[in-house]
Simulated scan of single mutants.
Amino acid sequence: MSENKKEQEQPRQEDSLEKEEAQNKQITEMGQVVLNKNLRKHKVELLTVIGEVEGHESSPSQSKTTKYEHVLPKLAMIEDDEAIEGLLILLNTVGGDVEAGLAIAEMIASLSVPTVSLVLGGGHSIGVPMAVSADYSFIVPSATMVIHPVRSSGMFIGVAQTYRNMEKIQDRITTFVSQHSHTSKKRLEELMLDTTQLVKDVGTMLEGPEAVAEGLIDEVGGIRDALDKLHQLIDGKV
């Protein structure tokens, strides 16, 4: 091999290593990565929502969290980047801050690029709006989704105004979910207020096929199905 060729290949290898290191750091810190090695040459952004959705208050340091101050700028960058053709969202969340979860869900729903979500493990509580916010949603057979009324932690003032405020927050959630799924607000409220399923709470736990049967999620499937669907949506948009 000639000296010139060696000199040309060395910077390429260094650039490749730098990109790989940057990608690994991004995965470690925020669970985000660009998927661009597919045969269709589509540039797909991956976003993971893992653990508790953290809002205005920090969760304990030992908790796995998804910070909305990381996710919202990333979604804005995806919308602004012409090279990004689609977004895949992987969810395994216990829920968390209502305001933060709804903010993320609204951002995903308003993106101009095709979006597909996949629920793995769990898509509980405020994870439900995030799961249905995508253009198309999948859930693996073993995953679960918990639907329950809005809850409040800390001091609670037991007056009529407080209860009305809780009802308004709950109405925002049920309205969003019904508008982005095939489930009605009435059915969602029935699932939220079921007293026969959860031992220490009111609500309903749905397994993968049940979530599809209720119209919350579009289809039972895994990562292959989710990526195939996203590529189809991207091809259909072109």
Rank of each mutant, 00 (worst) to 15 (best):
T66E: 10
T66G: 07
T66N: 04
T66S: 13
K67R: 15
Y68T: 02
Y68H: 11
Y68E: 05
E69S: 14
E69Q: 13
H70T: 11
H70R: 07
H70G: 03
H70I: 05
L72A: 06
L72P: 02
P73L: 02
P73Y: 02
P73F: 01
K74D: 06
K74L: 14
L75K: 12
L75E: 11
L75P: 05
L75N: 03
A76V: 06
M77L: 14
I78Q: 14
I78Y: 13
I78F: 15
E79Q: 14
D80Q: 15
D81H: 08
E82F: 13
E82V: 15
E82W: 13
A83C: 11
I84M: 14
E85N: 04
E85K: 14
E85D: 07
E85Q: 15
G86P: 07
G86F: 09
G86E: 12
L88M: 08
L88R: 03
L88H: 04
I89H: 09
L90N: 09
L90P: 10
L91I: 14
L91Y: 02
L91T: 03
L91S: 05
L91V: 06
N92Y: 07
N92T: 05
T93E: 13
T93N: 09
V94R: 15
V94F: 10
V94G: 12
G95V: 00
G95A: 00
G95M: 02
G95R: 03
G95F: 01
G96T: 06
G96D: 11
G96Q: 11
D97V: 01
V98L: 14
V98E: 12
V98I: 15
V98N: 13
V98A: 05
V98P: 04
V98S: 07
G101N: 05
G101F: 02
G101D: 06
L102F: 06
L102M: 15
L102W: 05
A103P: 01
I104C: 02
I104F: 03
I104L: 07
E106K: 13
E106N: 13
E106F: 03
E106R: 14
M107C: 13
I108K: 02
I108F: 05
I108T: 07
A109H: 12
A109Y: 03
S110E: 12
S110N: 14
S110T: 11
S110M: 05
S110K: 10
L111T: 02
S112R: 15
S112M: 13
S112V: 09
V113T: 08
T115V: 08
T115C: 09
T115P: 03
T115G: 08
T115A: 05
T115W: 08
V116G: 04
L118D: 00
L118Y: 00
L118R: 00
L118C: 01
V119H: 11
V119F: 09
L120R: 12
G121M: 04
G121C: 04
